[in-house]
Simulated scan of single mutants.
Amino acid sequence: MDRKQVAKATTKVISSYLTYQAVQTVLAQLTETNPPLALWLRSFSGRKIVQDGEVYLLALLAESQELAFRIMTVRKQLVEDIMDDLPEMVFYEIEHQNSQHRKQQLEKLSQLSITEPNSHLESSSEQL
């Protein structure tokens, strides 16, 4: 496991997700203040994949520098708002989810071992 590579890939995913959230925020604002521009941005976003936030922003910069800068500003504000809490929240969420998965798996395994003897008894009684 290359920790730096994992960190780099995680950063890209988070950055792209924050770009998506920034687009959603700007769309909500524009829907209230400038519906035709909101419609244009929604149409543009439908044609361009937001999964790679940087590619999306480069394409938007070529079409509308003002909107691209606005989305980048909102994205920066989002990361500033969540950065302090994010590492701890991610750690505890993964810990919680792992615990839930283990618990569910243990429940499945214990149900299997409880039902197996019964099914064995049923087949034995059928033979009698």
Rank of each mutant, 00 (worst) to 15 (best):
T19C: 08
T10H: 13
A7I: 15
I82K: 05
V74M: 01
L86D: 13
H101E: 12
Y56M: 02
Q127K: 15
Q24E: 10
V74L: 03
Q21A: 15
Q5T: 13
E116C: 11
N34G: 02
A28E: 04
E54Y: 01
M89H: 13
V23E: 03
L57N: 06
S113K: 09
M83K: 10
E63I: 07
H96M: 01
S124H: 08
L61P: 01
A22R: 03
T31R: 07
Q127W: 15
H120A: 05
E63H: 09
I94R: 06
R70Q: 12
E88D: 12
M89T: 15
S64N: 15
A7S: 15
L112I: 03
S64I: 04
S123F: 07
A68Q: 08
H120K: 08
G53C: 04
F91W: 01
L78G: 14
V90T: 08
N118T: 12
F44M: 03
A38N: 01
H96N: 06
A28W: 00
Q97Y: 10
L67A: 05
E107M: 10
K76I: 06
V79E: 10
R75S: 11
E95N: 03
S119G: 00
D52C: 06
A59D: 02
L41E: 03
D84T: 14
T10E: 14
E32C: 04
L106K: 09
L121E: 02
Y20A: 15
A62M: 09
Q77R: 09
P35S: 04
D81C: 00
K4N: 14
L128M: 12
Q65D: 08
E93F: 11
I49E: 12
Y56G: 01
W40K: 11
P87F: 14
G53K: 06
Y56V: 05
E63R: 10
Y20V: 11
S15C: 07
L86F: 15
L106V: 05
A68T: 08
P117D: 05
Q105L: 12
Q65H: 09
A59C: 04
L39W: 04
V90D: 06
S125M: 11
S125K: 10
M72F: 00
R75P: 06
R47Q: 13
Y20N: 15
K8L: 14
T33P: 03
L109P: 03
L18W: 01
D2I: 14
I114A: 12
P36E: 04
K12S: 15
Q100E: 07
V50H: 00
G46N: 07
T10R: 10
E66S: 06
R102L: 08
Q21Y: 09
E80V: 08
L128A: 13
T31Y: 07
A59F: 02
H96V: 03
S45M: 00
Q104I: 07
I82D: 04
E66T: 03
E88P: 02
E54H: 04
S64M: 03
Q29T: 12
T25W: 01
L57T: 09
M72A: 03
P36S: 07
N34M: 04
V13F: 15
Y56F: 15
R42H: 10
K108E: 13
E107A: 13
L58W: 02
E126W: 08
T10K: 09
L106C: 00
A22C: 07
S113Q: 08
D81A: 08
A59V: 01
L30S: 01
I114T: 11
L78I: 13
L121H: 02
M1H: 12
E95W: 06
A62I: 06
Q111R: 12
V50W: 06
H120P: 02
